[in-house]
């Protein structure tokens, strides 16, 4: 990847994305490189199924690219991408609402030697058990590091609602993990 593009801010990249074809393509690739891990992490943990997460990741960036020419000032690219991803995830969940879903996160591997890995597997399982409304907000906060205001923008909720949901999501996860966490606290 070219240094010139690596050093551009999100706003600058988005401007370049709307310019001539060659530079536009490179700006898009830089945006993908920069944000695909975060978008994928959200999709992966929210949907729980890797293949679906890949599909949504693709859809997200294709839709983003196709909408690049619409006039808008891009101040928060991460939030904008996650908003697209979130809509796609919600659609995917709606489509597969009645399907039997294979939740790979609830199968905890027993071959992990490291306690941290074991905790991670338990956390994945706990995330799966969260209601969707808590799950998505918790993932945006913990996996994507988004501010409350960004989460509120993405989910169209009040900041206070987001604040409360994050708190409750953590409470639920701590409850699920309590036997394990109490060992850590000792």
């Amino acid at each position: 990847m070219d240094k010139e593009f690596e050093n551009l801010s999100d706003t600058e990249l988005f401007r370049v994305l709307n310019t001539d074809g060659a530079r536009s393509g490179k700006a898009f690739e830089e945006i993908y490189t920069r944000y695909s891990p975060r978008v994928f992490a959200y999709c992966r943990r929210f949907l729980g199924i890797k293949e679906e997460a890949e599909d949504v990741l693709q859809e997200t960036f294709i839709r983003f690219y196709n909408s690049r020419l619409q006039p808008r000032e891009m101040s928060n690219l991460a939030a904008f991408l996650l908003k697209i991803a979130r809509n796609q995830c919600v659609n995917a969940l709606r489509e597969h609402k009645h399907d039997a879903r294979y939740d790979d996160a609830i199968y905890v591997r027993h071959d992990e030697r490291d306690e941290t890995d074991e905790l991670l597997n338990l956390i994945k399982m706990a995330i799966e058990l969260l209601p969707d409304e808590y799950k998505e907000i918790f993932i945006m906060r913990e996996y994507n590091g988004l501010k409350y205001s960004d989460i509120a923008y993405i989910t169209n909720q009040a900041i206070n609602t987001v604040k409360v949901k994050i708190f409750r999501a953590r409470e639920k996860i701590r409850q699920i993990l309590q036997p394990y966490l109490s060992e850590i606290s000792k």
């Binding site: 393509g25 898009f28 690739e29 993908y32 695909s36 891990p37 975060r38 978008v39 994928f40 992490a41 992966r44 943990r45 890949e54 990741l57 693709q58 960036f61 294709i62 690219y65 196709n66 941290t116 890995d117 905790l119 991670l120 956390i123 994945k124 913990e142 996996y143 953590r170 996860i173 701590r174 993990l177 966490l181 850590i184």
Partner: peptide, 29 residues
């Protein structure tokens, strides 16, 4: 501890390389 563990969830933060090719091809790049 929960946050630290989540940061080690590298599998979630690693999209398949093939996805990038597919995206670029799909948008005509």
């Amino acid at each position: 501890a929960i946050r630290e563990s989540i940061h080690k969830d590298t599998e979630a933060f690693t999209p398949p390389k093939s996805t990038k090719r597919a995206v670029l091809t799909a948008v005509g790049l």
